[in-house]
Design a binder for these strands. Structure first.
Length: 600
RNA sequence: GGCCCCGUAGUUCAAUGGAUAGAAUAGAAGUUUCCUAAACUUUAGAUGCAAGUUCGAUUCUUGCCGGGGUCACCA
């Protein structure tokens, strides 16, 4: 539809002003609500071609379109804005093309055309020494949603994560557990594995602080004390033992990581995210070390006298960056070089590698991509840092050491609880079994949470106020879920009344209500919005879209009656329109990773 | 200090250089003999400051003011 109108405008410019223009250069925008029309063409820029005022240009193009196309029924111009009013016929036809009878999921409105490109999306990538928190929730929901959006726009997507399973942080938890744990396990304590290990990470930090204080009292400087606290030295010793694969340390490492993975998996499952392939830092850091050795030979990196290895990026306006410590152990960058390499070996046809990581690491990724380029990997250009803003609390930034974190498991549970009490207040659990009700609370609570975190532009920092942030009214997940459930109720009734709406005599449909026209238009916009969301890596665009669609449907619902309509074909048309709206809501919410209930 | 990001209704968020800057929430006022009122309708309320480019600037450029991030032999 849009394309046909653009073509017609190009023809109009050609025949009226002898001006040739490509379709791509013509931009149409949806007409603002307070003017009549569906599409608006801005004529300001064409004034110098027509040598007439913007209004006169609009009048001429408008007349041409009315005379020469079936779609444009009339027009109006306001200043340099040409508003095109579509013929009713063409709107009904548009719906007919989008609607695929009863098999809604195969509707042309959201058919996917594969583009043959493979994309790897990395997200989550936690450390294995503490449980997931609110920041991880934004990360996971974002990464998962972007994967779905890329798929919907035709890519083949592989979802991966790198698990930071080695390093000093996990040794700290291990050491504290040995010291204070008394053999405690998830089974013996009933604690979720990741929370148990996190508990000992905190215990380490506490003991470490006590030792520092003691040393300072004994006359050490703060700085010395921080470096020489016995418990820290012991943790460092443990890391060295781990690197030598000391059987005892290695076994403990495997045991405690196992606890964490078990805990993470339960969290991921509840979050509704998953991965196609896992990478472990313990498997990639050695590759990174190899590459650094190669880089030294090639002269890309250099070794200092103390044995540490560096790269000099000052020609690129950046600093020098450490790649290997003087004791030869690897740093963050070392591992990331190895991981990137492994991925391009695993997926040779990869057209893009997307890292979903917070914006505090922008510098790190800038450096990483530059290093990969310097090492001569042509695919360095295909790496992209999907950088997102932090989630702030009303008290400021979340800091795990200060205990101001919002735990992911707690938050999800709280959301489900809120959904439960809200549903019960409204008295909407009649006809639900206990299990169904529980499932509903989960869908609603998680829906509210995901929608809340995804509706904001990912690049932006956002505020999360536990007391007020999560609403169930207004621009929220449950609002959209409710709209879907309501439509499903209509469809159930239609089935009960045995009204078939797979086949409709479209040529008899006329006198559409304003909200019906708007709905058809909204649904027809789905693919375009997916393409935009994909290009921008922004679930927020889909969230905005599905919200607008739900709002439009609620307007239709309030103003137009379906089952009181006397004309049977029109009644069927309205049911079909509702059905396709529901499916569009479902598919769009699916791209956000949010489920929609049949009843609520 | 260098580099990067952000300043929009009381609050939380929108706005490919386009019309009278949209929503939600909180406030005020309404809508239920009719398909689910977690809904709908009406109302009031905002672009940090100053220049520049443009037919047109929340958007682009520069300066200032304010907030955040980053520049680790942490990850």
């Amino acid at each position: 539809m849009e394309l046909q109108i653009k073509e017609a405008i190009a023809r109009a410019l050609g025949s009226l002003y002898n001006h040739e223009i490509g379709i791509a250069e013509i931009s149409l925008q949806p007409t603002r609500k307070d003017f009549e029309g569906t599409y608006t063409f801005v004529t300001f820029p064409f004034g110098r071609i027509s040598k007439k005022s913007p209004e006169a240009t609009g009048e001429e193009i408008g007349s041409f379109l009315v005379d020469n196309t079936a779609e444009v029924a009339s027009f109006n111009t306001v200043k340099g804005f040409l508003n095109l009013v579509l013929s009713e016929n063409s709107q009904v036809e548009l719906f007919g093309r989008l609607y695929n009878g009863a098999d809604l999921s195969k509707s042309a409105a959201f058919a996917i055309e594969k583009n043959g490109k493979t994309v790897v999306v990395e997200y989550s990538s936690p450390n294995t020494n503490k449980p997931l928190h609110l920041g991880h929730l934004r990360n996971n929901f974002l990464g998962y949603s972007v994967s779905k959006i890329l798929e919907a726009s035709g890519h083949d997507v592989v979802k991966v994560q790198i698990i930071n399973d080695r390093g000093i942080h996990i040794c700290k938890s291990m050491l504290a557990w040995l010291r204070f744990g008394d053999g405690e396990s998830p089974e013996s304590s009933g604690l979720k594995g990741d929370h148990l290990v996190g508990k000992y990470y905190v215990a380490f930090d506490k003991a470490y602080k006590v030792e520092i204080a003691t040393l300072v009292e004994g006359g050490s400087s703060q700085e010395e004390a921080e470096k020489q606290a016995p418990i820290l030295l012991e943790a460092q010793e443990m890391l060295k033992k781990w690197e030598r694969k000391d059987p005892e340390v290695y076994a403990l490492w495997e045991k405690m990581n196992g606890w964490v993975y078990e805990g993470f998996n339960r969290t991921y499952e509840r979050m509704g995210v998953n991965f196609d392939k896992l990478y472990y830092e313990s498997e990639t850091y050695l590759i990174g070390k190899d590459k650094i050795a190669e880089g030294i030979e090639k002269g890309v990196f250099y070794k200092k006298e103390d044995g540490s290895v560096w790269v000099d990026l000052s020609d690129d306006g950046l600093d020098e960056k450490l790649l290997l410590r003087k004791d030869g152990t690897s740093v963050y960058m070392t591992q990331d070089i190895g991981t990137a390499l492994m991925r391009f070996e695993d997926f040779p046809t990869l057209s893009q590698l997307i890292y979903t990581v917070g914006n505090e690491q922008e510098y790190h990724f800038k450096v990483l991509f530059l290093i990969l380029k310097k090492l001569g990997y042509s695919w360095a250009e295909a790496c992209y840092h999907l950088s997102y803003g932090m989630v702030d609390l009303p008290t400021g930034k979340m800091k795990s050491r200060e205990g101001t974190v919002v735990d992911a498991d707690d938050l999800m549970q709280e959301m489900a609880n809120t959904a439960e009490s809200r549903t019960k207040e409204l008295g909407k659990i009649e006809g639900f079994s206990e299990e169904q009700a529980k499932e509903l609370y989960e869908v609603l609570g998680l829906g509210a949470l995901k929608y809340f975190l995804l509706k904001v532009d990912p690049r932006r920092r956002m505020l999360f106020d536990p007391a007020e942030s999560i609403e169930f009214q207004g621009n929220t997940g449950p609002f959209i879920q409710y709209t879907h459930a309501r439509i499903k109720s209509i469809l159930r009734k239609a089935n009960q009344l045995e009204i078939g709406f797979a086949e409709i005599a479209f040529d008899t449909i006329s006198d559409l209500h304003e909200t019906e026209k708007d709905l058809v238009f909204m649904i027809s916009q789905y693919k375009e919005r997916v393409a935009l969301a994909s290009a921008e890596y922004s679930p927020a665009i889909m969230a905005q879209y599905v919200y607008d669609l739900a709002k439009e449907y609620n307007r239709f619902y309030a103003e137009v009656s379906i089952f009181n309509e006397a004309d049977m074909e029109k009644r069927k048309f309205r049911i079909a329109l509702s059905a396709l709206a529901a499916e569009t809501i479902k598919v769009s919410m699916g791209l956000l990773g949010v489920e929609v209930p049949e009843k609520m």
